[in-house]
Design a protein around this nucleic acid. Structure first.
Length: 219
DNA sequence: GGCCAGGACACCA
DNA sequence: TGGTGTCATGGC
């Protein structure tokens, strides 16, 4: 594989779709809440939940600590898994208050490795959510891997030997400049492509991946 | 009416 | 380490 392949795919995607303006959210805390709520859920449903939280005056760490878990679950009902996600939000704000006095600037002042380890220790925050928080709320140069990314890369024949989150992440981070803006836009573009792409295996001949496929086989 | 969304965790072998 | 079940609504 040419070491410029991932660069070229990025430029092709950007040319096709343009900037995606991620992450939708008014401030870093809202981005974090959205990152937890969007786990295996359509963003359209997450927006409804975020609106509910704002209307209830609960889009803040202290407000989320003070509200009951049941009431919180009601507010985020549209996202699905609302009981589980209510516990996850509770776990995060409890930890944020106890460890950092609700100060996200202090949290994001940690070095990248320490920050990621600490986020992963919080209940409900796995690799993708941790990396989304770091990149889109903390502006840290780390690449977010999701199901779309794996599917697209795999179908292009670029899958790493190990089918693990870390292996996919290294694939991108070893070949691209450690640039927050690039990582931000690239992941968003992969999701955009993923929404368009045909899900059938093997790759069908006429879906939105075709152009990239043709490019890759030419490269 | 079935499928699947911008996952994570518990439990098992 | 890897596979499976669970959590669950809403749009197409």
């Amino acid at each position: 594989m040419g070491n410029k392949t991932l660069h070229n795919i990025y430029h092709l995607l950007y040319k096709q779709y343009g900037p995606q303006y991620w992450w939708p959210g008014e401030n870093p805390f809202e981005v974090i809440v959205g990152a937890i709520l969007t786990q295996s859920a359509a963003w359209q449903n997450v927006e409804k939940a975020i609106t509910n939280l704002k209307n209830a005056g609960t889009m803040s760490p202290s407000a989320l600590r003070n509200i009951s878990t049941d009431k919180l679950a009601q507010l985020i009902h549209p996202t699905g898994y609302y009981n589980a996600k209510a516990l996850k939000l509770k776990a995060f704000v409890r930890w944020l208050g106890a460890s950092y006095g609700d100060d996200l600037n202090e949290l994001f002042a940690l070095d990248t490795d320490t920050l990621r380890r600490q986020l992963l220790d919080v209940y409900g925050i796995g690799p993708e959510t941790a990396d989304s928080i770091m990149l889109y709320a903390g502006n840290k140069p780390i690449f977010v891997i999701d199901a779309y990314t794996r599917r697209i890369i795999s179908r292009l024949g670029l899958a790493p030997e190990k089918n693990s989150y870390d292996a996919y992440q290294k694939l991108f981070m070893n070949q691209l400049p450690q640039n927050v803006g690039l990582f931000n836009e690239y992941h968003a573009l992969l999701v955009r492509l993923g929404k368009d792409a045909c899900r059938k295996q093997p790759m069908c001949g006429n879906c939105c991946l075709r152009k990239i496929c043709r490019f890759h086989s030419d490269a």
